[in-house]
Every structure is written in structure tokens, then in C-alpha cells.
Design a protein around this nucleic acid. Sequence first.
DNA 1: CTTGAACCTATAGCTACTAGAGGGATTATA
DNA 2: TATAATCCCTCTAGTAGCTATAGGTTCAAG
Lengths: 136, 136
Amino acid sequence: MFSIGQLSKLTGVKIPTIRYYEQMGLIAAPERSEGNQRRYTADGLGRLSFIRHSRDLGFSIENIKGLLELSQHPERPCQDAHSIAVEHLKDVQNRIAKLRRLERELKRISKCDAGNIADCAVIETLADHGLCETEH
Amino acid sequence: MFSIGQLSKLTGVKIPTIRYYEQMGLIAAPERSEGNQRRYTADGLGRLSFIRHSRDLGFSIENIKGLLELSQHPERPCQDAHSIAVEHLKDVQNRIAKLRRLERELKRISKCDAGNIADCAVIETLADHGLCETEH
DNA sequence: CTTGAACCTATAGCTACTAGAGGGATTATA
DNA sequence: TATAATCCCTCTAGTAGCTATAGGTTCAAG
């Protein structure tokens, strides 16, 4: 049996976050000690690790709920899990593409070597979208 | 003079967002009509366009406050504006790097062609960090 | 038995908005 | 000029995914 602090250390998930996950229904409310403190089993540890890892990979709480549900039913077809992952991959790729356009623009405008604000390319570009090279 | 709705259409910033910016101190409270409705000048339009554009480029409200402050003082050196932009650029580059690691991992795990959850690579990888190829 | 660390609940705050309720103002048309 | 349609007002609460704080209780070591 682990206390919430031990679980936190083992998984790297902060204590208030664990309680938050419980509130959100991601993990079941665990048993309690006589003094009303949470006591987790190895099962709880596994589930929280799954969540931690999924969050690291950027899955939303809602997606993780779905994935956890699926993982409880080994006999089901895995299409659903697959499409959640693929959707998320698409999302990640979109975000990368968008950030790279920003990167280009920021690189360009931050090359400013003016002496004062009046001629600063950063300020000038922000004030006038027309000066941008890419769309956003 | 523009109403808030006209300003919204001209800049692409939604009406509640404009009011929110006013509340946050990004834009000054404009004059009001006799019936207490906001009336904006061309100046207000310029300022909101600046904000819109900066937000599009991912600058935070706090950063934008700083940049707006700077843009009001054309005689000052532009180092501050420059370093805000460079900091932001670094941040964007970090995020890109992180997302690309995720992309690799997600691509790998979503190649799963198992029939059911029991053998699904997606679920399996999420449950066990040890199966990952890159750190995160 | 005492002390200090760990734990409890409940509430509020963070970013950057968005949505809704319940009302008043403005404008176009009849 | 009346009225309907559209716009606008404030205020409050909700979104994601936590984090922080206050005020109190329990646990484990010495």
C-alpha cells in the first residue's frame, strides 16, 4: 500500500494533481486509512503511470479517459485506441506546422538592429501585418 | 467612431475578447455614447490590430503589455522589444523540438495493426514508458 | 508522548478567453 | 412615429489542467 506522497514520488505526478485526477474520474477513489488518508495499491500505481505517460505525450484528459476505458477491455478491437492516437498525431503535426511558420516570422523580425523603438522592426511588424511574409 | 461590433469585424477580435482586453488593461477604456456604448477611434483600432497580430504570433498578454508600452516611446532604445521577441522565439523553438519528439513517438505507436486491445501497441506503449524510444 | 512531516478538505487562482442571462440602446423600416 | 431587429451593456460562471493557500488532522520516528 502506498500513501499519496509515495505514489507521487514513484510516478512524478504532484500530489494535488493526483487528487485532481481522482476528482475528474480518471482514477478511482482509493481505500482510506483509519485516519482517512488515501492508500493505493499497485494497480493504482499502474493506472497513474499510464495517465502520466499519456499526459507527457500530450493526450487530453478526455482522451485518456477513453484510452483507459479501452485498456480495461482487452478483447475489444483496437480501432478506437488507434484512431485516438492518429487524431492526436494529426493535431501535433498541425501545431508543429503552425509553430514553424511563427518561428520563421519571429526570426525575421527579431533580427532588428535599430537603435531605438522608432525604427525597430519588431514593433513595426507587430503594428502592421502587411509586413509579414507568411500568413497567420 | 466605431462601435465595438465594427471594431470586432475590422480586426477579427471577438467582442467579448475586446472587452476582456479592456479589463486587462491592454486597451484604454474608450469614450461612450450617450447610451453608454463603447465608441472607438482610429487609434483604438490601431492598438487592437497590434494586439491581434501579437497574439497571432503567440506573445502573451503580459509581453504584449510590455511591447505596447515600448511602442509608445519611440525615442527609447529598442533592446527591450528585441529581447522579448528573442525570448519568445526561443520558447517557440523549444516547443517545436518537444512536439517533434512526440510526433516521432506517436507515429511509431500508431502504426499498430493488432486486432484487439490486448496486443495494441498504442495501449501497450502508454502503459509502459520503457517501450519508448525517446525521452519525454 | 511529543514533534514534525505528511496528509485532509475546501476554496481560489492561473491563461486567455467564451457563453449565458437579463436587460437597455440604436437603427432600419413601415 | 412606432416598432422590430439588431446591437450593446454588465455580471457571472465555465473552459483545461492544474497550482497554491488556509486551516485543520494523522502518521511515524525518537
